[in-house]
Simulated scan of single mutants.
Amino acid sequence: MKRTWLGLLAAVATTLVAVGPGQAQIKLGLGGPITGGSAVFGSQMKNGAEQAVEDINAAGGILGQKVQLFLGDDVSRPEQGVSVANKFAGDGVKFVVGHFNSGVSIPASDVYQENGILQITPASTNPVLTERKLTNVFRTCGRDDQQGAVGGKYIAQNFKGKKVAVIHDKTPYGKGLADEIKKNMNSAGVTEVLYEGVNVGEKDFSALVSKLRQQGIDLVVWGGLYPEGGLLVRQMRDQGVNAVLLGGDGIASAEFGAVGGPGVEGTLMTYGPDPTKRPNAAAIVKKLIDKKINPESYTLYTYAAVQILQQAMEATKTTDPKKVAEYMHSGKPFDTVIGTISYDAKGDRTDSDYVMYIWKKAADGKLIFEEMQSAP
Rank of each mutant, 00 (worst) to 15 (best):
M1V: 12
M1G: 11
W5T: 15
L6F: 06
A10H: 10
A18K: 14
V19C: 06
P21V: 13
Q25H: 03
K27W: 04
L30Q: 06
G36R: 05
G37Y: 08
V40G: 02
V40A: 04
F41Y: 01
G48T: 05
G48A: 08
E54Y: 14
E54N: 15
I56L: 08
N57T: 05
G60P: 08
G61Q: 06
I62A: 10
I62Q: 03
I62N: 03
L63D: 00
V67K: 14
F70R: 00
L71I: 04
D74A: 00
D74F: 00
V75C: 14
S76F: 01
E79D: 11
A85I: 10
N86G: 07
A89K: 01
G90M: 09
G90T: 07
D91C: 07
F95W: 02
V96M: 09
V97C: 15
H99N: 12
F100S: 10
S102Y: 00
S105C: 14
A108N: 04
D110M: 15
D110Q: 14
V111C: 04
G116T: 12
I117M: 07
I117N: 05
L118C: 08
L118R: 08
A123H: 11
T125E: 02
N126S: 10
P127T: 02
E131F: 13
L134A: 02
L134G: 01
T135C: 15
C141D: 12
C141W: 14
G142Q: 15
Q146W: 06
V150N: 12
G151M: 03
Y154R: 00
I155R: 00
A156G: 04
A156D: 08
Q157F: 12
N158T: 13
K163W: 09
A165Y: 00
Y173T: 07
K175N: 01
K182V: 01
A188I: 03
V190L: 00
E192G: 15
L194F: 01
N199M: 03
V200D: 06
V200E: 09
K203N: 12
K203E: 14
A207D: 08
V209I: 07
S210D: 10
S210L: 12
R213P: 14
Q214I: 15
L219T: 03
L219Q: 04
G223V: 00
P227G: 13
L231I: 07
V241F: 01
A243T: 08
G250E: 04
A252R: 09
S253D: 09
E255K: 15
F256A: 11
P262I: 05
G272D: 15
P273F: 05
T276W: 07
A281S: 09
V285C: 13
K286D: 10
K291T: 09
N294M: 10
N294Y: 12
P295W: 11
S297W: 11
Y301H: 11
T302A: 07
T302H: 01
A304F: 08
A305I: 06
A305S: 12
V306M: 05
I308N: 00
A312N: 01
A315H: 13
T319Y: 11
D320P: 07
K322H: 15
K322I: 14
G331I: 06
P333K: 06
V337G: 10
G339Q: 02
S342M: 10
Y343S: 12
A345H: 01
T350S: 08
D351F: 03
S352G: 04
K360Q: 08
F369I: 13
E370V: 14
E371D: 13
